[in-house]
Design a protein around this nucleic acid. Structure first.
Lengths: 197, 197
DNA sequence: GACGCGGTAGACCGACCTGTCTACCTTCGG
DNA sequence: CCGAAGGTAGACAGGTCGGTCTACCGCGTC
């Protein structure tokens, strides 16, 4: 078995495995997908899966890490196109919408979904889950500093912007409104404007 | 086995089973909890479980139905205390916060969590999941009519209020901000006020 | 006193789960 | 030419899963 904290060796088949695992875990749920299924979809033997990742838990952790990497890349891409402070807040919603649209199917935030299935604190994906929302909140917080939002409003507003972003992912993922990201963007912009005025 | 659409016979042990199942499914995840574990926690035999509910899927559906019943009861309780139109919108957030606080642990919306684990459209809990967000959106929609929000703003605003509510549940559930419900409430009120002015 | 009912106790089934193992094949660098 | 590395094929182990079944018990009611 692969040692627990030893990094994954990214052979071509390891990439195939991650790709297959990511799609299956996201679309069907983590516990609902067995390692045999993942290996089969990747066109690979189970032994190769264990040679590269060492355990299913580790594969899950890598799945979440890679999805989060994608997301942050989409966010910086969207942020690079906006210089106006309020537009930069809006860009977070646009970037998330673009990231969601890039997935073959959208079933809500992968981290939230994984959180619903991971109970043991010892799971290697646990720290990733805990860190992700904090990171996004800090992102908003920084954008609010840049926008000149007074410190007394900053914490509350960061939470509100984060709630809108998370809520939009849920709303779209459950099919309650296909324009959820645009609506959330408008609301976020309105909230920021109201404390700047 | 219990017939698929035949109603559950609510004997005392059936209630014990639902209570145990609800706690376990919510706190550990649905797939992670076996029927043996549920029966054991309820102080009941597996046979009794199957005599009353017929299948695990059916038990899951009843779990979600009962949690949603609780939630709507908390919402009407909060709504009954508010007559002012904007205060009634705020009451939805307060009611949800009270409902969340009533749970021994809060790990986000049970329906969203279940949605992450349920992939098969034939699952008896599937219609419940699909209906729930629509119902809540309709609730906001009705409150906005009552508040005199012009029709052109109503749909977008209902989605924004729903996103704030769902987002607050995520934010609190993942520990990103313990005051998530209060923040969401303030943001929702501000958004409603801005279209009324 | 017979019967139905809700329940216990626990064996049992086949399927599937994560994870390991042996044996062999291919490719490539020194 | 050799050996290491990445891989295939597939059996295997031990455990858990959802679900079924038989045998029995206690209680209330015709």
């Amino acid at each position: 078995m692969l040692a627990q904290d030893q990094p994954v060796e990214w052979t071509p088949k390891a990439h195939d495995l991650l790709e297959a695992a990511a799609a299956l875990f996201y679309e069907r749920g983590i516990a609902a997908v067995g390692v045999d299924t993942v290996a089969q979809h990747a066109g690979v033997t189970k032994k190769t899966l264990y040679d590269r990742f060492g355990s299913k838990e580790r594969l899950v952790a890598e799945y979440l890490r890679s999805r989060e990497e994608q997301r942050r890349a989409a966010l910086v891409a969207a942020l690079d196109e906006a210089r106006d402070p309020v537009e930069r807040v809006a860009a977070v919603y646009d970037g998330t919408r673009a990231w969601a649209a890039a997935q073959p199917v959208w079933r809500g935030c992968p981290v939230v979904n994984a959180h619903a299935e991971i109970n043991t604190a010892g799971h290697p994906a646990y720290p990733l889950v805990a860190e992700q929302k904090r990171w996004t909140r800090d992102l908003f917080s920084g954008l609010l500093v840049y926008a000149g939002v007074p410190a007394e409003h900053r914490d509350a507003l960061a939470t509100q912007l984060l709630a809108l972003l998370e809520g939009a992912q849920v709303v779209v993922g459950m099919g309650a409104d296909p324009h959820g990201f645009l609506r959330a963007r408008d609301a976020g912009v309105a909230l920021v404007r109201s404390v700047l005025a």
